[in-house]
């Protein structure tokens, strides 16, 4: 690629990123200005629209010294466990569905597909009753469980595994490698980008989860960030300053992790080579 093309492409990319970032920038600015300034500079456009003219850390400090700190730790713990356990379960299932030719494979695949068509909020109440009978209220287990069997992640990984040439597997099996060896030594190492994508699915499900944590874990010790943020709005009053400060934390953490994930993608570019 020549230099001019890189320049054009870079500028376009940066422009797109700015467009996507503007609403987030406004969130950050709103978190760092006095509460009464948040809606003051909406129109006409002025410096105040996008810059915190009366900069203050008051809301960030208030938020961080309250129970929100515990909530975000809970979110991180729950999400991390979900991703690790979920990846193990989903990739194993996807491997069987993509590679092993067994009777009933179609039925199992249809069950997986149906499972991600069901709107989770609509079944949260009956699921809550089951979990209550198992005494899983206010536990990490109760929070993590609904996130681990993700039909969409299974589907994604299956799509990717289907694309791995079967000659690799056949050669390995002739050399005496078993099914688990094929899965662990051949398929998983070749599927890092797909595993990252699957992790993203699991991450978004758990990080965005709201109704379920609200039902299963309302005790302050197990509150997650998405629930904690909603509590800054009460019937008569919404504390936008704290909501935006909390949103800042909730988005900064994935920002750091996602930038790291992107390195996984870049590594894959380097190994397979760019396309131009």
């Amino acid at each position: 690629m020549n230099n001019n093309a890189t320049m054009v492409r870079t500028s376009l990319t940066v422009l797109c990123a700015i467009l996507f970032a503007l609403p987030l920038w406004w969130v950050a600015v709103s978190a760092l200005r006095p509460e009464n300034d948040i809606f003051r500079y909406l129109s006409p456009l002025s410096w105040g629209t996008l810059l915190p003219l009366n900069f203050t850390l008051e809301h960030v400090v208030e938020l961080w010294s309250g129970p929100f700190r515990l909530a975000i730790m809970n979110s991180i713990i729950v999400t991390t466990v979900t991703i690790l356990v979920g990846l193990a379960i989903c990739s194993a299932a996807a491997f069987a569905l993509a590679i092993i030719d067994f009777p009933g494979r179609n039925i199992v695949f249809i069950v997986m597909v149906v499972s991600f068509l069901i709107p989770f909020d609509a079944i949260a109440v009956p699921l809550y009753q089951t979990m209550r009978n198992l005494n899983l209220q206010n536990t990490y287990t109760g929070l993590v469980l609904p996130g681990i069997g993700n039909g969409l992640a299974v589907f994604l990984l299956r799509q990717f595994f289907l694309g791995i040439p079967k000659e690799l597997r056949e050669a390995a099996m002739i050399d005496g490698m078993g099914w688990f060896g094929v899965f662990w030594r051949i398929y998983l190492p070749l599927s890092v980008p797909a595993l990252i994508s699957a992790a993203l699915i699991l991450f978004v499900f758990q990080w965005q989860a709201y109704l379920w944590p609200l039902l299963i874990a309302p005790a302050p010790d197990y509150k997650v960030a998405a629930v904690a943020i909603a509590q800054f709005s009460t019937q008569y009053d919404v504390n936008y300053a704290l909501i935006f400060a909390a949103a800042l934390f909730i988005s900064l953490i994935p920002m750091v992790i996602l930038t790291g994930f992107q390195r996984g993608f870049s590594a894959s570019v380097a190994s397979t080579g760019g396309k131009e």
Binding site: A124, Y128, L214, P220, A230, S233
Partner: peptide, 25 residues
């Protein structure tokens, strides 16, 4: 006294699914 806060919009869902289902918690 252990206080559990639920946002206004969701209090109804919480009462339905907990008190409504005979939950003693």
């Amino acid at each position: 006294i252990r206080y559990q806060q639920v946002p206004f919009e969701d209090l109804n869902a919480a009462i339905e699914s907990r008190v409504g289902q005979g939950d003693s918690s």
